[in-house]
């Protein structure tokens, strides 16, 4: 147990050397706190309308101004964090699990199974992920569950590709042969031996994919295919604000900044993790 803690500390130590990764990490921490404590932080109910102050600019009472429907933009941005983050997190978690299982099975068993799984993944990879997501939501209808499905389906191929190549590398190591020699079954070798040692690229990928998922969720929202109003969501709000962008830019700028920051945060962290985890975390 102690050594686990030690290695976490060591990884954090390496992460700390990458300044952008630290910035990313802080952005994400703030984002998560915001999402979790949204009801406490937000000064107003995000759906409370005060039509009299519609499109009012930033002020002490409304630090990010008011949107067309008279709702407090600051409160909506804060609640939006909750929506974006939850949907993206669930979607990435699903695609990470499914993609990793498919990819590692393909890599580990090889031959026909590998061909079948990876050719299917190739088909998905050939379609730009946002187009794929749009198609899925367009067919199934814009419900939250469909949104999650759309975003996760479009990221599965990435995970499976990465898991496959990681497992392929591990598969040829001597400890796998040793496991066969003590009679471990194939599945046990995959899940107890090969997979736990392939987690590094998958973790890195998960962080990077969080960024794209947030972008996809708000992109779909922007196109009216995402979370439906009046639920506060950055992309949807941005799209609504577009009409009045010239007279009330604040209603669009702040959700936009929120999207930008969270995407950048996960990207920085992902890159940082890649560096911190890769120079062999198993130091000899």
């Amino acid at each position: 147990m102690k050594s686990r803690l030690d290695s976490v500390r060591k990884i954090y130590g390496r992460l700390k050397k990458n300044r952008l990764a630290v910035v990313g990490l802080w952005i994400i921490i703030i984002l998560v706190i915001t999402a979790v404590f949204a009801p406490l932080i937000a000064p107003y109910d995000p759906n409370e309308q005060d039509l009299l102050s519609s499109l009012e600019g930033p002020s002490l009472a409304h630090p990010m101004g008011v949107d067309f429907f008279g709702r407090d933009v600051f409160s909506r941005v804060i609640w939006g964090a909750r929506v974006s983050l939850t949907i993206s997190l669930v979607a990435v978690a699903i695609s990470a699990v499914v993609g990793t299982i498919l990819g590692s099975l393909a890599g580990f068993y090889g031959s026909v199974l590998d061909e079948v799984i990876m050719r299917i993944m190739d088909v998905f990879l050939a379609i730009p992920s946002i187009l794929l997501a749009i198609a899925i939501v367009a067919v199934l209808g814009p419900r939250t569950s469909n949104l999650i499905l759309a975003v996760s389906v479009s990221t599965i191929p990435e995970f499976s590709r990465i898991a496959r190549s990681a497992v392929l590398v591990e598969k040829n190591k001597e400890y796998i042969e040793a496991a066969r020699a003590i009679g471990e079954s194939r599945l046990s070798i995959l899940f107890r031996y090969a997979l736990p040692n392939s987690m590094v690229p998958i973790i890195v990928q998960a962080s990077l994919r969080m960024a794209t998922a947030i972008l996809s969720v708000s992109g779909l929202g922007f196109l009216g295919l995402g979370v439906q109003p009046p639920t506060p969501e950055w992309g949807t709000d941005l799209s609504l604000a577009r009409t009045y962008l010239e007279i009330a830019p604040h209603a669009g700028i702040f959700p936009g900044i929120a999207i930008f920051l969270s995407v950048i945060g996960f990207n920085f962290l992902g890159d940082g993790l890649n560096e911190a985890l890769n120079p062999k975390l198993k130091d000899r």
Partner: peptide
């Protein structure tokens, strides 16, 4: 049973 040459790669690091 078998004992391998490389003591570094023949044990599961996890």
């Amino acid at each position: 049973q078998i004992v391998f040459q490389d003591p570094y790669s023949s044990l599961n690091p996890r």
